[in-house]
Structure formats: C-alpha cells, structure tokens
C-alpha cells in the first residue's frame, strides 16, 4: 500500500472515528501520565506499581476517558459518584480495589501478587436521557514473575467471565501459543468477544483504536467475536526503532436494546451497554529482525567451517615442517 493511500485512509478513518464516538468512554489504562511516570515502577507487561502509605506495593490503573489512547484524559471523575469496583484475583477470589483521587486523576489500586490474570472491572449504572447506561471498563492485569515458576500456566491462561456481576464485557481471545511471556505486537490477529450476560452477542459495534488513532470498526459475528489485526502504527526511521516501545490500544463495544424500566426510581426507555478494554502492544518483530540474514549466516558458517577442517586435514598430509624460531632479539 502506497503512503498516499495510507494517509487518505487515515484521514478518512479519523473523521469516521470522530463521528462514531458519541460519548466519551471510560477505560482503565496501565500507562501513567507522563509527568509522574518516573515515580512508577513498571513490571512485566507494563503493569504499574505504586507504593502505598503503608509501604506495600499496589498495582495501579488509571481511569481515563476518551476514545483514543493517546488523547484520553486522565479523568478527574467518573460518571457516577460510586462506581462498582470488581477485582477478581487469579484464584477466583474477590479482592478489594480502591478508587481514589490521587496522582493526576482517579486511580484504581489493588494489592495482590498471585500468578495469573487479575480481572479488574469498573462498573457503572446511571440513567441519562431516558437511557439506562451500563458502562463496564475492564482491564486484565497479568501478574507474573518467572522466579515463581510456571506451573499450571496453561490453566491460568484461560479467561474467566462473571456473568452474574458483570452484565457486559469484552474478552480478548488468547492468540495461539500465548503464555505469560507473550506480548501482543502489531501485526497480530486478535479476536475480541463481546458477551452480554455471558452469552455471545451478535451485531454489537466493536471499535479498536490504536495509540495513533488508527481505528477499525466491526460488528460482532454470530459467536460474538470481532477479529482485528493490530495495525502497525509505529514507523520511526530504521535506526531509531525502539523494540520495547509500548503502545496502548483501546477496544470499545456498544450495544443498545429497547427495553423500558426504571432504575433507582428513574424510568428509562432503552438500555445502552458500553464496554471498554484497554491493552498494550509492542512493535512487530518483523520490523527489526531478519529471518533471511540469519539463515544466510547460518548456512554460510556451516560449509565455511567444513572447508576449514578440510584444508586442515589436507595440510596435515604434508610432510613435517621445521620449527620456526625468531632470530631477532
């Protein structure tokens, strides 16, 4: 694809995306605001840690609002005063999560060092313009240290859903061969599944936006899945490639159903489900590695060594040679 085409498409997508996002989305991000990023300890997979007042380390997520990762605000508030915080540890126990207004916005903190995925949800329900909004911001926080071992990793890779508590959620299907050490990278095909009360939801609008506002919209298929390719949006000059450059992506899903009722005494005509799922990815390996050069080198070395050995053996067949001495002082 030529550069011109790319730009055209990008511009088109930009406008399209602007139109698509009617309301601001709330999502959970593991990237701190730039100003304070030095105070934060980063673990594997971009998990951020902060030391609490009691000296214990907590995992921290920022509540942000916006449809594109790079433009999202570090929100100073959420839609409601008392959002439901739901954190499930890898062993299936609910643990306490705190929302506090602290470092540059609202943050969600929780403790825990177990191996596996922590499922974190921020869940809100409010009525606005005769619509019951159900907003679910989700994050999967992977906690893993190689020193803890990798026993039972395959089991812990399975994703969990909470149909009772969380009515609407986006699930990222694992890519083939994924394990605790896998990092999504641009170019990967990722499928997101939208679940309404645990059942796959068809015709739901799913939008994926990358760090640099590349946007793709899809409707879920019969299995509730929407398959995206994480497009490469990192094109530095070859010499400046940073292979550890972590970018965020944001997935949002929307679904509106006509159903009247009342919530907390306020009647509504329809229910609008909105889910978000944040994540991060790194540049594709193909940007900076070469299979061909590796193969050429490998294939070149083998006969080269063999030739050396051949000549050494031939050399040995020659008669004995005198020892050489250096006459100079």
């Amino acid at each position: 694809m030529r550069l011109k085409d790319r730009i055209l498409i990008a511009i088109f997508l930009l406008f399209f995306a602007e139109g698509a996002s009617a309301s601001e989305n709330i999502w959970l991000s593991n990237t701190p605001p730039k100003k304070i990023s030095k105070k934060i300890r980063h673990g594997m997979h971009g998990v951020s840690f902060i030391k609490g007042n009691d000296g214990r380390e907590k995992k921290i997520l920022w509540i942000r609002s916006g449809s594109f990762p790079v433009e999202s605000q570090y929100a100073n508030c959420t839609n409601t005063k008392n959002p439901v915080i739901f954190v499930c540890s890898p062993d299936g126990k609910l643990i306490k999560g705190n929302v506090s207004h602290g470092l540059w916005g609202h943050v969600l903190t929780f403790e825990g060092n177990m191996e596996g995925f922590y499922n974190v949800y921020l869940f809100e329900r409010f009525v606005e313009e005769e619509t019951l909004n159900i907003v679910v911001a989700k994050a999967e926080v992977l906690s893993h240290k190689c020193s803890n071992g990798h026993a039972g990793m395959r089991k812990k890779m399975l994703h969990r859903t909470f149909n009772e508590e969380i009515p609407f959620e986006i699930v990222r299907e694992r890519i083939p061969g994924e394990d605790f050490h896998t990092f999504l990278s641009s170019g990967d095909d990722v499928t997101f599944k939208v679940l309404l009360k645990g059942a796959p939801l068809e015709y739901s609008k799913v939008m994926l936006s990358t760090q640099k506002r590349w946007v793709n919209n899809l409707k879920t298929d019969i299995n509730g899945g929407a398959a995206f390719q994480l497009v490469g949006d990192y094109y530095p000059r070859f010499k400046e490639i940073n292979k550890r450059n972590i970018h965020n992506f944001l997935v949002t899903a929307e679904y509106t159903v006509k159903k009247s009722g009342s919530y907390q005494g306020i009647p509504y005509e329809r229910i609008h489900y909105a889910g978000t799922l944040g994540g991060s990815y790194i540049p594709s390996k193909t940007m900076y590695t070469s299979y061909l050069y590796g193969l050429i080198l490998l294939i070149f070395v083998m006969p080269a060594v063999a030739t050396l050995i051949y000549f050494y053996r031939e050399h040995r067949k020659r008669p004995y040679k005198e020892y050489a001495f250096r006459e100079k002082d």
Binding site: F238, K243, Y288, T289, Y293, G294, L295, L298
Partner: peptide, 19 residues
C-alpha cells in the same frame, strides 16, 4: 532463526547465535 537489527548489541548477539 533471525538477526535482530534494532540495536548494535542485539545485532551482535543474535548474529553470534547464528554463527
């Protein structure tokens, strides 16, 4: 089987691996 060209160190190490 690859050579990582992202940095000089990476390139040296991966090329060494191939050799």
């Amino acid at each position: 089987i690859y050579i990582d060209f992202s940095t000089k160190t990476a390139m040296t190490m991966t090329a060494l691996g191939m050799i």
